[in-house]
Measured scan of single mutants.
Amino acid sequence: MATGGRRGAAAAPLLVAVAALLLGAAGHLYPGEVCPGMDIRNNLTRLHELENCSVIEGHLQILLMFKTRPEDFRDLSFPKLIMITDYLLLFRVYGLESLKDLFPNLTVIRGSRLFFNYALVIFEMVHLKELGLYNLMNITRGSVRIEKNNELCYLATIDWSRILDSVEDNYIVLNKDDNEECGDICPGTAKGKTNCPATVINGQFVERCWTHSHCQKVCPTICKSHGCTAEGLCCHSECLGNCSQPDDPTKCVACRNFYLDGRCVETCPPPYYHFQDWRCVNFSFCQDLHHKCKNSRRQGCHQYVIHNNKCIPECPSGYTMNSSNLLCTPCLGPCPKVCHLLEGEKTIDSVTSAQELRGCTVINGSLIINIRGGNNLAAELEANLGLIEEISGYLKIRRSYALVSLSFFRKLRLIRGETLEIGNYSFYALDNQNLRQLWDWSKHNLTITQGKLFFHYNPKLCLSEIHKMEEVSGTKGRQERNDIALKTNGDQASCENELLKFSYIRTSFDKI
C-alpha cells in the first residue's frame, strides 16, 4: 500500500482533458527560462521544448504516446526543470519506465491550478516501474492521483506527508504495488545497510526511497516546507523545498512566496507586481503582455491589467481597466465587458449561442446573426445582446428569417469595421425574408467608422429604411451602385405612401 494514499474509496472516473512563447529569463536562482504550460502528445517531438525550461508557468501534460519505446527515452533528460506552477499529468506514455532521468531536479509542483483537485496525476502508464522524482520536495496545493499503472512499484516507500501538507485526498490505487509483488529495495538494503531515512506512518517504520538508488530526502521537522541542505541544516524561511546553503534567500532552489532578481522575498516591493503567484514583474512586463494579447485571437491570451499590486489576466467583477495605466478602477454604474472572439468572429444561430455573449459591452471581433427560429426570440436576444455598444469588426445579418427588427441591439452605437466582410463591408444584410426595420432612427444613433453597407434580398425592408441608415451611420456616399439592390429590397412591402385627393359631386333626387 502506498504510504499516505487512500484505498478502496469510491472515486469519480478520471477524465483526461485534452506555445513556446518565453516569458522571460528567471535569473540567477533558476538555471534556465520560464516556459508556458505545455500539452505534449502523440510523439516526442515537442518534448524537446523543455530543454531550457527551469519553470513551467502553467501545467505540463505528457500523454497518448503509443509508439514510443524505452530506448526512445534513454537520452532524454531535462535537468534544468525545477518547478511547475500548476500540475504534472502523465497518461498512456508507452515505453517510459521512470522519471528519474527525465526530470531529475523537479523540486516543486505548486498546484496553482489543479487537474480535478490533483497536482500530480500518473494514470495508465503501462510501462512505468517507478516514479523516480527523487528531488520532489513540495506539492504546495492539491493532491496526488496514481492509478492503474500495472508495473509501478516504489510507492509504499514514499512518505507523501513530507511532500504535501495533507495526504487525506491522495488516491493511489490499482498499481502493481497493490499486489505486494514489488519487493522494493532501498539503497544499501541488499548489503544489509540502512542508507535512507525511515519514518513512521500508520504504525509502520519504513525506509523512504524513490528507487533502488535514490533515497527520499527527509528534512528535520523544524525546517517545515522550506527544505534543508545535504547536511540537514534548514533553508531560509522564504525558500521552498530545498537550498544549497542554509538561511540564505539567494540560495533557495525555489521560493515559498515570490522570486525577485535572484532572491526569494515575502512580497513584491514597489515598483514590482505579483505575477502568477510566484514571481515579481515590473510595469513594462505587464504592459507588454497586455499589448501582445490586445489584437491576438490565441486562446488563453489575456490583456493583463494591474489590481491590488498584482498583474492579473482581467479586472475583477465591479472594476474596469483604465487604459492609460492598466489599473483596475471601480465602475460607475454597470461595468464594461470586452469579449474577445477566439477566431475573430462568432455566429449567433440560437439563443444558446447568444447567451455566451451575455453582459458583453464591447465585441472584439465580428458578429454573424443567422437565426431561423426560436421561442420568445426578441426578448431572449435583447437579454443577451442588448448591452453590446461596440463591435470592432463587422455585423452580418444573414438568412435570419425569424427577425423582424434589429432593435434587440438596443445599445449598439459603434461598428468600427477594423475587419470587413469580403474585404469591403462593415454591415452586411443578406436574404432576411421578414426583416422590416433596422432601428427606430428617431431614437437610435449608430456610427460606422469604416467599410460599406450591403443589402440584398431583404424583400420587406424598404429602401427608405436603408437610406436612413446611410445618413445616420455616416456611410452615405461610400456605397457603390450594386451594394444596395434596388429590386430585391422592399419588393414585397408597401414602401411608397402617396396622399390621394378626392373630389365629389353631391346629387339628390331633384338636383344634379
Rank of each mutant, 00 (worst) to 15 (best):
N42S: 10
L88P: 00
H127D: 12
N308S: 05
E238S: 08
E124R: 07
K193M: 13
S324V: 15
L99Q: 00
K80Y: 05
A198C: 09
T199H: 14
E97H: 09
A156S: 10
W278K: 01
C235K: 00
V200G: 04
G37P: 06
C235M: 00
N325R: 08
F91I: 07
T250Q: 02
M38W: 03
M137T: 10
N175F: 12
H212C: 15
K217I: 13
T199E: 05
G192P: 07
G37S: 06
Q276I: 04
R92E: 00
P246Y: 04
D165R: 11
C280Q: 01
P197Y: 08
S225F: 13
S323L: 10
I122S: 04
D178W: 07
I312S: 06
L136G: 01
S244Y: 06
T250A: 08
L90E: 00
T229F: 15
C235N: 01
R110K: 07
N175Y: 05
I56A: 00
C182W: 05
D86Y: 01
I84S: 00
L120G: 00
R298S: 12
S225I: 12
E266W: 15
F115C: 06
C196K: 02
Y94K: 05
E49Q: 12
C219Y: 03
L50R: 02
V305L: 04
L106K: 00
T189D: 04
L133P: 01
I84Q: 00
L332G: 15
K224D: 11
N149P: 01
E71F: 10
E207R: 09
H274T: 14
L240H: 14
N195Q: 09
Y171I: 14
P197A: 06
K129T: 14
V265I: 07
R162P: 10
H302T: 13
E147H: 07
L131W: 01
I158F: 09
P313T: 05
R162T: 07
P271E: 02
E147D: 07
S323C: 04
Q299T: 06
A230S: 14
H48N: 15
L90M: 14
R297A: 11
E97Y: 08
E33V: 06
Y154P: 14
N257Y: 06
V121H: 11
S213T: 08
L133S: 04
G95H: 14
S112I: 14
M65H: 08
L63F: 04
C215G: 13
S213I: 12
Y273I: 06
F205N: 15
T199M: 04
T157E: 14
Y273T: 06
Y30R: 02
C223K: 02
T85L: 07
Y94A: 09
I139D: 01
R162C: 14
H302C: 05
V121I: 08
E231S: 06
F73L: 08
E130H: 10
P269W: 01
N175L: 12
C53E: 00
L327K: 15
C293D: 03
C209P: 03
P31S: 15
R141V: 07
N42H: 08
S77Q: 13
G262V: 02
G32A: 09
D261F: 01
G203I: 04
I109D: 00
N257H: 10
I222F: 08
C328N: 00
T221E: 15
I84V: 03
L164I: 10
K292S: 11
T157G: 07
H212N: 13
M83T: 05
V200C: 09
F115S: 05
L88H: 00
E180P: 11
C293S: 03
P316M: 03
K224W: 02
G262C: 02
G203Y: 08
R297T: 08
L128R: 01
R145V: 12
P270N: 03
R145A: 14
C209V: 03
P197E: 06
C311E: 01
P104W: 00
L29F: 01
K129A: 13
K100L: 10
G183W: 03
S323A: 12
I158H: 06
C252S: 00
N42Q: 09
P316T: 01
I62C: 01
Y304A: 03
C235R: 00
I62D: 00
R69M: 07
I201V: 14
I163V: 12
L114G: 01
N170F: 10
G183R: 07
N117F: 07
I185C: 08
I306G: 04
N150I: 11
L44Y: 09
A198R: 10
L326V: 06
L63H: 08
S98D: 03
L164T: 11
A230M: 05
F275P: 00
P79G: 05
Y154R: 15
P330S: 09
R256L: 07
V55L: 02
I306T: 04
N309Q: 08
Y272K: 04
K310D: 14
N257V: 01
Q299P: 14
E33C: 12
M83H: 07
N195I: 08
I201S: 15
T157A: 11
K67T: 06
C153H: 04
C53V: 02
F275N: 01
E238Y: 05
N295F: 10
G333S: 05
G203L: 09
S296I: 05
V34T: 08
P31R: 02
V305F: 04
E266K: 15
N179D: 06
G95S: 05
I40G: 00
C335Q: 04
C280E: 00
I84R: 00
G32K: 05
Q276N: 11
S244P: 04
L89N: 01
P187Q: 03
G58K: 00
Q61S: 13
P36G: 15
K217M: 14
H307Q: 04
E49M: 08
T107K: 12
L240Y: 13
